[in-house]
Design a protein around this nucleic acid. Structure first.
Lengths: 292, 292
DNA sequence: ATGCGGAAATGACGAAGGGTCATGGAAAGA
DNA sequence: TCTTTCCATGACCCTTCGTCATTTCCGCAT
């Protein structure tokens, strides 16, 4: 059986005759006759009693009409639902901790304001987990700093970022300081697998600057507090340190030959089907995020 | 869209791949691919993300799967229900008052015993109403005494019946009585339109026997009671009078030249689709009713 | 009775949908 | 790197579904 049979059957019941149903459906009368005949043969029972030119639903016909009505209503609902999905299917967005602690929530807020009614699921996790979730299609898109390893993921830059050296004001550091001021000094680091940590370590190594590890914290706020308490130094995203720099709890400084530039990237699977909602989110990141 | 698309889509979701689904459905893999493609084009959105050889349902796909599952379940239920109907669809049986007061309930009881689980709707009404309901397909079959007028109804005899003269025992009548014993006597009659009344009136007329109308009752029990009280005579079906004859409240007698033979008939529309249940009921009337 | 009009059934036939096989491309595994 | 596996694509064929033409039957009016 096909939905077509049910549609025709329902029309015959509603119109009260095969010819009338054919007119409603804009098909020929024999086609309707044949469809009803097929239904009756398939189910092995008459759906109508033919009393001369009058059609009367049999009890079996009445029962089938109920099912047909429900089935067709469901199919219609499915169409409506899919039409809704085509426009604003929910999107699942991931972000690393660094981005999650800085621009992520403002970015989402701006996007929601621009796209009211758009459902968004969001998750904050480390780069490795985000990658595997992108590959498993459990996330539609992710915002990460640094590079991505899987060749199946495509990353587009959307925001420039930099790490800055941070110190307690009591140290009296500012502007450019000599390399000796930080060489071998104690630094607070993020945990293994952190993009921030990786960038810091590789940049210091490239600059030939050794350092001590004063502590490994899996979040930035604790590091900011530790540095403010003058337990050591750190290098974190300027965006994260901004509040502490603004009220003087921390100061930032530069070291000759050390650059911490990096790029935030919006990443999704190369074969990801881009719904309008997802396309809009990508476009938003690439064009609007610079205002944050 | 067709049910076929939903079936294939569901299979792909369940099997986890198009090739596997094709194997389950015993069709070729390209056919499955095409069906999914058509669904996606029709709804204007992707149902799966194709990450290499892996398929992942999109959120739209998840939504559609829910609808598809419900629709297919309903269609299956419809098939089951129709299968049930094909075997024992409910039957609507009508009967005249005369039959309703005598053999109808025993007949139904015997049929139910022979066909447990068979649903039966029954209605007792006069011949005219039964006929119009048969023509309007509101009754499947009716049991009537006497003839049927519409040419679209077919009547098959299933039981012989006769009216018998009834009197109070105190009258001292029995066996064959002379015509003078009833000529001009008071008789209780059923209402206009009653087959029993029609037969009585026409038989008396044919015999040239006049009579008085002592009362017109629309049921037989009241007539039996009136005759037992010796308010007058009556002629009713022997089957109805049997209890009164057995315990001596009434006696029956014959009059030379007067015969009240008639036939109970089972009637249905000539074009009525005979479900197995209906066919069984007709056969039961024609072959088993004689034992009542 | 007789003929007419309307509705369903039937038959022939063309177009389209749905099936197949053969093949290509991309990803996963040896 | 080679092989295997899976999905996508294209060519082709057959069944299905559409049409029109015609028939049949019932209901109605003459």
């Amino acid at each position: 059986m096909t939905l077509r049979h049910f549609r025709i059957f329902q029309s015959v019941c509603r119109a009260g005759g095969m010819t009338a149903a054919a007119a409603v459906l804009h098909i020929s009368q024999p086609s309707v006759s044949q469809a009803i005949r097929e239904l009756e043969e398939y189910y092995g029972t008459a759906l109508f009693d033919r009393f001369g030119r009058q059609l009367h639903l049999t009890s079996a016909g009445k029962a089938l009409l109920g099912y047909a009505t429900h089935i067709l209503a469901l199919e219609h609902q499915a169409g409506e639902a899919m039409r809704g999905f085509a426009e604003r299917s929910p999107i699942a967005v991931g972000a690393t901790l660094s981005i999650g602690e800085s621009v992520f929530v403002p970015l989402l807020a701006a996007f929601r304001a621009a796209h009211p009614g758009q459902e968004i699921f969001s998750r904050i996790a480390n780069t490795h987990e985000l990658e595997s979730r992108l590959l498993a299609d459990e996330l539609d898109v992710a915002l990460i700093e640094g590079e991505v390893t899987s060749p199946y993921l495509t990353a587009r830059p959307f925001l420039d970022d930099e790490l800055v050296f941070l110190a307690a004001p009591s140290r009296g550091l500012s502007g450019k300081v000599p390399r000796g001021a930080v060489a071998g000094a104690p630094f607070f680091l993020r945990e293994e697998g952190s993009g921030t940590r990786d960038l810091f370590v590789s940049a210091m190594k490239a600059a030939g600057l050794p350092f001590e590890v004063a502590g490994v914290y899996n979040n930035s706020v604790s590091i900011l507090q530790a540095v403010a308490a003058d337990f050591g130094f750190a290098a974190l995203s300027r965006r994260i340190a901004t509040p502490y720099l603004a009220d003087g709890r921390l100061v930032t400084f530069g070291v000759a030959g050390v650059a911490f530039r990096r790029t935030f990237r919006v990443v999704c699977h190369q074969n990801k089907y881009l719904t309008p909602a997802l396309r809009a989110f990508l476009a938003f990141c690439e064009h609007e995020a610079v205002h944050l």
